[in-house]
Each structure stands twice: as C-alpha cells, then as structure tokens.
Measured scan of single mutants.
Amino acid sequence: VTLFVALYDYEARTEDDLSFHKGSKFQILNSSEGDWWEARSLTTGETGYIPSNYVAPV
C-alpha cells in the first residue's frame, strides 16, 4: 500500500472532494483520473477526491 501525506491544507469545493489538513495521510484508491485522485483518509476513514499536487509519498 502506497501512503501519501498532505503538503498543504485543502478545503473541499464539491461533495465528492475531501477536506484535509497538512500532515494528513491517505491511501490512494485510484490515481488514473489525472490530477484528482480517489483516496481514503487514514485520519477520518472518509473516501473522496484529492488534488494530487497537494500530496507526496510518505
């Protein structure tokens, strides 16, 4: 499992996005959609889309 960590805070703009804070960790579920990845937050357990340029591999 590849884990990613948030580099910045992000406020969701749609109900499909995940809001998160810098330092939040994610499991990436689908990275084939270009700049928006489907991810599960390891902090909240919620699933949604995150901007790929806001995260980096742990």
Rank of each mutant, 00 (worst) to 15 (best):
W37P: 00
I50A: 00
S19C: 05
E38S: 07
T47I: 15
T47W: 09
L18M: 13
Q27H: 12
L3V: 14
D9C: 07
K22S: 07
D16Q: 14
Y10S: 02
S32D: 11
F4L: 04
F26P: 01
Q27C: 11
Y10T: 00
G34S: 13
D17Q: 15
D9S: 08
Q27F: 14
G45R: 03
A6Q: 01
G45H: 06
A12K: 08
T44N: 08
A6K: 01
E33Q: 14
F20P: 00
L29F: 06
R13V: 12
W37Q: 03
Y49V: 07
T44W: 02
K22Q: 08
G23L: 03
T2C: 13
F20G: 00
I50P: 01
G34F: 09
T43S: 13
L29N: 04
T47D: 04
I28S: 01
E46F: 07
P51N: 08
R40E: 07
K25W: 14
W37C: 04
D16N: 15
V5A: 05
F20L: 04
Y54M: 11
V5Q: 07
K22G: 04
A56Y: 09
L3P: 05
L42R: 02
F26V: 03
P57F: 06
V58I: 13
R40H: 10
N30L: 06
Y49K: 14
E33D: 15
A12W: 02
D16F: 15
D9N: 08
S41V: 08
G23K: 01
D9F: 04
N30V: 08
S41D: 15
F26A: 00
T14W: 14
E33H: 14
V55Q: 00
Y49D: 02
S52M: 09
E38Y: 15
G48H: 04
K25H: 13
E46G: 05
A39H: 01
F4T: 03
E38F: 15
V1R: 09
S31D: 13
Y10P: 00
L7D: 01
Q27G: 03
A6D: 00
F26S: 00
A56N: 05
F26Y: 02
A39R: 00
S41W: 04
V1G: 13
D9K: 04
D17S: 14
D17E: 15
T44Y: 03
G23Q: 02
Q27D: 07
P51L: 08
A12Q: 06
N53L: 09
R40A: 06
T2V: 13
S31H: 11
K25F: 15
S32Q: 12
L3Y: 12
V5K: 04
E15W: 09
E38C: 15
Y54E: 01
T44E: 03
V58C: 12
S52Q: 07
I50L: 07
Y49L: 14
W36K: 11
S31N: 12
A39I: 04
S52C: 12
S24R: 02
S24A: 14
Y49T: 07
A56T: 12
F4H: 06
D17F: 15
R40P: 02
G45N: 08
G23I: 03
N30S: 11
T44V: 02
H21P: 10
Q27A: 09
S41G: 03
F4K: 00
Y49Q: 08
T2W: 12
G34W: 10
E38K: 11
E11G: 05
G45V: 02
E11R: 08
I28T: 02
H21K: 15
T47G: 03
L3H: 10
G34T: 13
D17I: 12
I50N: 00
P51F: 06
